[in-house]
Structures are given as structure tokens and as C-alpha cells.
């Protein structure tokens, strides 16, 4: 069986029994984030743009600040390197809207494929994602334009569809089978029809931004030299908001922090293609010195480069970069303009 119907309280109980850390969205908007559910705390019963915190869940497995190694140098030039542990408590993310859930597909392909990024790989193995169907799109949402929808389960291990006091739970991967077994025991099965019926309540509404996904990459490649990039980015202030808050952006910096002359640590911190020094070489040469070149990198990375390398867009339509950009730079507007659709 791949789907069951359980009372919401049962999910609460089963999760508590696992002893895993449970993270839930808390405090929508600017002050919000994914936070640990207190013992006995209630799981969220619905999700939508109105429950979406400004800070995406990526920081759980890709923290802004992560130690990569520590070092001790000897006075005669000896070097001792201590590896970092890259681990965390076993964790379940509960109640992520489909945009945030799908962000893990993008992060996994970027950070795990070929050579794995050790910090992410270590923690990702300990994370399970329980996505939830979204019941309210916001004015910045455009998930349906990027191949997702309010009911898509991409990136989820289990997917829940709230239905009154019940949840329909769908098993998407085997990663949370420990929990699944607890839920499944004695629960009523839900067949495909029941699932579709509940799922059907989470209908994509007509979103504010619409563009055709398929034609996009080709159109964007042609638009590489477009003068529009300058107009698009003339008011950009090159802050880190659109990328730090993006659930899929994953660029980082590596810097050393010396404790004293002979010891210290190496850190990985979030970085962004929007900072001018991101691509600045020591020789002063900088291939993306101009703001428009940096904005172009952000848009094309998401809608051209990542799709070419991994087969899906590196944008889940969550709308954060639009909502929180201090100067109203709107990635969907830019993509619509350059992607040559309505």
C-alpha cells in the first residue's frame, strides 16, 4: 500500500515515538523560519503561502556557517588537520509546502551528484521530508510555472494531504519507512481514487506569473546578449536576499578563521553570485564585474544551466526572491520578458 488515511493526532503520536527531531514552519514572513517542534507541540494542520517563513529549510542541511576542518600548526611547520563531523540529530521536516519540498531535489542534484559536498551529504542522509499539499497560494507564488503544483510531492519522502481531521499520507520514498510502519499498522488504506479526490482539493489557482517551461531554456540562451539585462538589474543593490532566501540557491564561500597564529578552522558560509567579489580573482580580473552580468547569472543558473545539467529548473516558484527583494526585482517578470511567452 502506498497511501493511508490516519487521524492527524496519530501522526503526532507516531512522530513523537520515533524520538526524531521534528522541524516545522513557524512564523510566516520576515521573522519566520523552520523551528524545532516542542515536545507535545501541535503539528501544523495546513500549509500555504501564509505559513511560509522567509527563511527556507535549506539551512538545516546546508547551514550558513559550517566548519569544514580545524588545523593546528607546529612551530617547525608541522601541520595537523582535524576533519569536521558533518552530522546532526536525525530530523524530520514536517509540513513543508511543495515549493520548499521540491527544493531538496534541486539541492540534491547540485550538491550530491558526481562528487558529493561532504557537509551537505553528511546531514542530508539524516533528514526526512514530509511535504504537505498547499491550500493557499500567495501573490508571489508561481510553482505551476516551474513544473510543480500545490499538490506535487517532488522531494518528499512522505506526502500528506490534510482532509478535515484526517491526513492522507502517501509514501513517496523508503527513507521514512520507520515512521511509515508505525502509521500503517492498523490504519485504513487509501486507494488511488481516494488519494486523487483529496489531492484534487489542492488546486492550482491562476497565478500571477505564467511562462512556458519547455521553450524557456532555448529562449534564454538566445537572450544571453539581450540589452534587457541592464534594465532588469539597474536598481539591484547587490544584496544577498534573493539568493540567501532562495530554497535552492547553494553557492558558498570557504574562508579560514584563525584562532591564533598556529590554529584555527576553515568555514563554509553562504555566498551569492550577487556579491561583486564572488567571482573576483586575486589578480583583479572579474568576469562578472557588472550587476547585470550577476543578475543574468542568477536567472540563467536557475532556468538554463541547472536544467541542462540536471533536467529540472532550479526554481520552485516559492516567490521569496520577489517578495523580499528590497527593490522589486521580479525573477518571474524577467523570465517572462526574456523567455518570450505571455
Amino acid at each position: 500500500m502506498s497511501a493511508i488515511r490516519v487521524p492527524a493526532s496519530r501522526m503526532e503520536k507516531a512522530l513523537a515515538e520515533t524520538g526524531w527531531r521534528v522541524m516545522v514552519p513557524s512564523g510566516a514572513g520576515r521573522k519566520g523560519g523552520y523551528v524545532e517542534l516542542r515536545a507535545g507541540g501541535r503539528l501544523p494542520r495546513e500549509c500555504g503561502d501564509h505559513t511560509k517563513p522567509s527563511t527556507p529549510p535549506k539551512g538545516l542541511v546546508f547551514p550558513n556557517n559550517e566548519e569544514l576542518l580545524s588545523y593546528v600548526l607546529g612551530v617547525k611547520g608541522e601541520i595537523e588537520v582535524g576533519p569536521a563531523s558533518h552530522t546532526m540529530a536525525r530530523t524530520v521536516l514536517y509540513g513543508t509546502p511543495p515549493c520548499d519540498t521540491a527544493s531538496f531535489r534541486a539541492l540534491d542534484s547540485a550538491l550530491l551528484k558526481d562528487m558529493a559536498e561532504p557537509g551537505y551529504a553528511g546531514k542530508r542522509g539524516l533528514l526526512g521530508v514530509i511535504g504537505m499539499a498547499c491550500s493557499r497560494a500567495g501573490r508571489w507564488c508561481f510553482c505551476t510555472s516551474v513544473g510543480l503544483s500545490p499538490r506535487s510531492n517532488i522531494g518528499a519522502d512522505l506526502m500528506v494531504y490534510p482532509d478535515g481531521d484526517d491526513l492522507l499520507v502517501e509514501r513517496v520514498s523508503d527513507r521514512l519507512d520507520g515512521l511509515w510502519k508505525r502509521l500503517e499498522a492498523g490504519a485504513a488504506g487509501a486507494d488511488e481514487k481516494a488519494l486523487r479526490a483529496v489531492e484534487g482539493k489542492f488546486v492550482p489557482r491562476v497565478l500571477n506569473f505564467v511562462f512556458e517551461a519547455e521553450k524557456l531554456a532555448d529562449a534564454l540562451e538566445k537572450a544571453f546578449g539581450s540589452p534587457y539585462w541592464k534594465e532588469f538589474s539597474e536598481r539591484c543593490v547587490s544584496c544577498g536576499i534573493c539568493t540567501f532566501l532562495c530554497p535552492t540557491c547553494h553557492c558558498f564561500d570557504i574562508t579560514d578563521v584563525a584562532k591564533d597564529e598556529l590554529s584555527g578552522k576553515r568555514l563554509r558560509t553562504w555566498d551569492t553570485c550577487q556579491f561583486p567579489e564572488f567571482t573576483g580573482e586575486t589578480s583583479a580580473h572579474n568576469p562578472r564585474k557588472e550587476r547585470w552580468a550577476r543578475q543574468r547569472q542568477r536567472v540563467l543558473h536557475k532556468f538554463l544551466y541547472h536544467p541542462r545539467n540536471h533536467g529540472h529548473m532550479m526554481c520552485t516558484g516559492c516567490g521569496r526572491c520577489i517578495r523580499y527583494c528590497p527593490v522589486d526585482i521580479n525573477i518571474a517578470e524577467g523570465v517572462m520578458r526574456l523567455g518570450g511567452s505571455k
Binding site: 527563511t55 550558513n64 543593490v237 547587490s238 544584496c239 544577498g240 536576499i241 540567501f244 558560509t269 553562504w270 551569492t272 556579491f275 528590497p326 527593490v327
Partner: peptide, 10 residues
Amino acid sequence: CIRCYACREV
């Protein structure tokens, strides 16, 4: 603070 530097840039 997540050090996005938006406060400085705006």
C-alpha cells in the same frame, strides 16, 4: 543576522 548586507546596500 544572516549577513546578506541588504541593510548596507539599500
